[in-house]
């Protein structure tokens, strides 16, 4: 099975938006590879013609009627927001215009 290099670990950490220290990266490289070794047993099984199971419960078409229900008040919605300006939540500016 695959082995993770330190660069791979750093790439996955970036995908997951986890800011990790050098020490954490080092420790995770070892631990993740050890865990991946445990995954290797799965390769023993021939699953080519086996259908995947995403959910064990056999439900389908669980739908709701298109009916409006009450929303939270603005203050309830924003009660936990770290930074607020008026009725908006504030985040650092996202450069979406010209490069």
């Amino acid at each position: 099975m695959a082995t993770l290099s330190r660069d791979d670990v750093a790439h996955v950490a970036h995908l997951a938006r986890l800011g990790l220290t050098e020490e954490e990266l080092t420790r995770l490289e070892g631990q993740l590879n050890h865990i991946l070794d445990q995954y290797a047993v799965l390769a023993e099984l021939d699953t080519e013609h086996i259908a995947p199971t995403a959910q064990t419960i056999e439900l389908e078409n669980i739908l709701r009627a298109d009916v409006v229900t009450p929303s939270l008040s603005v203050d309830e919605a924003l009660a936990g927001a770290p930074e607020r300006a008026g009725d908006h939540i504030v985040v650092p500016g996202i450069i979406a215009e010209y490069e």
Binding site: L45, I50, A51, P52, T53, A54
Partner: peptide, 13 residues
């Protein structure tokens, strides 16, 4: 495919 899909198939087994 090697991990997630494989695990879902083994889940079936």
């Amino acid at each position: 495919d090697a991990f997630y899909l494989k695990a879902q198939k083994v889940r079936t087994l």
